[in-house]
């Protein structure tokens, strides 16, 4: 770790990563990489900057490339700034059969943004999700950490409007 500048990882984040490290054999610190990137992202307004990814790698004693390749492989890591809330609409087969495409279109109109974009006030980033494993409650939407199922356009409006 660099001596001159403090790590981009907060003390709380480092303590949390340390907790994860206890789960794996001492020689397998790399196993904590996925959880550590989640922790870093959550503490950074929902996204990972290249510097932050490198800080995670440094903290775990890994070459930065190992953290970059993981951060770019998995869909839950955002590599650009995002809104305060992430809204992900599942559009896989079961949700599609029960109106996910129409729901997504409705949400785009309601928020006046396209999928993949963030509202100008920085409130919401709207995304498509691949199967969330909630097909029994299709169409399903994930907002931050919570699942919402059987979402109609009316319910979508309520949910979106309640996000501050």
């Amino acid at each position: 770790m660099s001596q001159e500048k403090p790590s981009l990882l907060s003390e709380a984040s480092r303590a949390e990563i340390d907790q994860w490290l206890t789960k794996y054999p001492p020689a397998q610190k790399r196993s904590a990489l996925l959880p550590a990137l989640h922790i870093a992202q959550d503490a950074n307004g929902g996204w990972l900057s290249p510097e932050l990814i490198e800080a995670v790698a440094n903290y775990l004693g890994l070459p930065p490339v190992q953290a970059y390749e993981v951060a770019t492989f998995y869909s839950m890591y955002d590599l650009q700034p995002v809104g305060r809330h992430k809204v992900k609409v599942c559009t896989s087969i079961s949700c599609m059969l029960r109106g996910a495409d129409e729901l997504l279109e409705h949400m785009e109109k309601h928020l006046k943004i396209k999928v993949g974009e963030t509202t100008p006030d920085g409130r919401i980033t709207l995304k498509k999700a691949e199967c969330l494993a909630a097909c029994g409650g299709a169409p399903a939407v994930m907002i931050d950490r919570d699942y919402h199922e059987n979402i109609t356009p009316e319910k979508a409006n309520e949910l979106l409007d309640s996000l501050k």
Binding site: K23, V70, Y74, S75, Y77
Partner: peptide, 10 residues
């Protein structure tokens, strides 16, 4: 037993 989390990859 330990739990581990993924990050979005089918």
């Amino acid at each position: 037993i330990h739990f581990h989390v993924g990050a979005g990859a089918y």
